[in-house]
Design a protein around this nucleic acid. Structure first.
Length: 459
RNA sequence: GCCAGGAUGGCCGAACGGUAAGGCGCACGCCUGGAAAGCGUGUUCCCUUUCGGGAUUCUGGGUUCAAAUCCCAGUCCUGGCGCCA
């Protein structure tokens, strides 16, 4: 949430921000609401002041001799109360509406964010790992075909037990997943991250704290209710990213200056409805309803947040470097920023199989595996995340940042496609072998069941 | 799940229904040769240029002229019982 007094004092900046993002927010209406509320608030305060005076008098008017005066004062207090209730009720309604509307105002982009409303206005900063490629994109089999051939990814049976968009990993596939998780956690632990294993259900309140709610209710899985129904603060939802539980861990806390920067990493499953996302770009496990991710969350002092953003990006990139997977860094433009972010870098890994128009010259396509974002005090204000710069000073909002480090299925896609061999096996990246008991190649498994027999895939 | 007890400022901790003591910590000032002690001020949020005012005793309702205090509902914590991977 942006600061209301910032809005009041810098309406032009907010108006520009909203426009550059292509967001649908009426700033003038907000300003007017604020103005009207403040008027009523002042009026209510005045009335209440009068009433407090009268009330104090009543308390002192004891004994028989003051009986009459006392009764008169009580009458006066009653009259004031009636008037007060009217004014305050109206003020409360306005304040509720104002608060609600403020929750829908996106963050103000940092001045260094490229201007633009569309994806093509994102700026590519750099590429890594394209000098000596180990595959020719034209000959690579897509992961969804290879995964099925090797019987390490089973989408059909995932749909059977749960629904489309869910899948089983099996044998070396499942093992690769476990290996990647431990591998990533080890890297980030070296970088100073403290592990956290978060609860998976999160409250509406937590979802609001990080900025998922109220805007993106439709993307979440609700526990025990329909998304269309009204929700209460303590209703539960399945975690869409560990950012939610981990950032909200310290909600309404006051951290010490010495605690910062505080760096947490959290491995967790993530659940997203991904409503209406279908087609060739989403075949396989590129866009699914449940996936695992190691998330990096930072809590820092405001002055340091932009330096930390660069550091955070490096920390996330390190995973791809050690896996020796080619990737690029993208600076998102104003229109592509997420709701709560002031500045975001995307890390996109190269998946060579499916040739897309917006992919690199070498063929294949880019897959977003991480977004490193600085939210400044936007989430901190919503969630109540503060720190005390000096012991005697009052608490201030800190800055939060996060990045995936990384999203697992897409890394797996990149590995299955980039490390694919001509004989249809997959070489295990060297850095990952210690986590696979030294295994160097994934050769696949014999399929199970009569369907495989009928298809001639088994004798 | 049941029963009992609890929730007050950064922390500790008081308050017959009458308008939130006191202490600690921290900061600044006074005092001092310097320090300690002592004294003073400050140490939530909102409105207000200032002066000042309002709100705030876990949350939400209710009773009352007046609620930290009484009533109802909820959240969380503690203990006991029950259940249970």
């Amino acid at each position: 949430m942006i600061d209301r007094s910032y809005l009041r004092e810098n309406p032009e900046e907010v108006r520009d921000a909203v426009e550059n993002r292509g967001a649908d927010v009426d700033v003038d209406e907000l300003l007017e609401l604020d103005e009207r509320w403040r008027e009523l608030k002042a009026k209510g305060d005045e009335l209440r002041h009068e009433r407090n005076q009268v009330s104090k008098r009543i308390g002192k008017l004891t004994g028989k001799e003051n009986e009459e005066e006392r009764e008169a004062a009580i009458e006066e207090s009653k009259a004031l109360k009636a008037e007060l209730e009217e004014v305050e009720a109206e003020a409360a309604d306005l304040k509720d509406e104002l608060d609600e509307r403020m929750l829908e105002v996106p963050n103000v982009p940092h001045e260094t964010v490229p201007l633009g409303l569309e994806e093509r206005h994102n700026v590519e900063d750099r590429r890594w790992g394209f000098d000596d490629l180990r595959v020719d994109a034209d000959e690579v089999v897509p992961h969804y075909e290879l995964g099925e051939e090797l019987d390490i990814i089973d989408e059909g049976r995932g749909a059977k037990t749960t629904g489309s968009g869910f899948y089983f990993l099996k044998g070396d596939g499942a093992r690769l997943e476990h290996a990647l998780i431990q591998f990533m956690l080890d890297i980030h632990r070296e970088q100073g991250y403290v592990d956290v294993f978060p609860p998976v259900p999160v409250t509406s309140e937590a979802m609001r704290g990080t900025g998922q709610f109220p805007k993106f209710v439709d993307d979440a899985y609700r526990l025990g209710g329909s998304n269309d129904e009204e929700y209460a603060d303590d209703d539960l939802w399945l975690c869409p990213t560990a950012e939610v539980p981990v950032t909200n861990m310290y909600a309404d806390d006051i951290l010490l200056k010495e605690d910062l920067p505080l760096k947490h990493q959290a491995y967790s499953p993530n659940f997203r409805r991904e409503a209406g996302e279908h087609g060739t770009e989403t075949r396989g496990i590129v866009r699914v309803h449940q996936f695992n991710k190691v998330e990096l969350v930072n809590f820092v002092e405001p002055e340091e947040s932009y330096d930390r953003l660069e550091g955070l990006l490096e920390e996330a990139e390190e995973v791809l470097r050690r896996l020796e997977l080619p990737y690029r860094i993208l600076e998102l433009c104003t229109g592509d920023l997420t709701f709560a972010s002031a500045k975001t870098y995307d890390i996109e890994v190269w998946a060579p199989a499916d040739d897309m128009d917006d992919g690199p010259e070498e063929g294949g396509r880019w897959l977003e595996v991480s977004s490193a974002s600085n939210f400044e005090d936007f989430q901190a204000r919503r969630a109540g995340l503060r720190y005390r710069p000096e012991r005697h000073e009052s608490a201030e909002y800190l800055h939060t940042l996060n990045a995936s480090g990384l999203a697992l299925p897409r890394v797996m896609v990149a590995i299955l496609e980039y490390y694919q061999n001509e004989d249809g096996t997959v070489t295990v990246p060297e850095a990952l072998r210690p986590y696979m008991d030294g295994q160097e190649v994934i050769e696949g498994h014999e399929k199970v069941g009569e369907a495989a027999l009928g298809a001639g895939e088994r004798e």
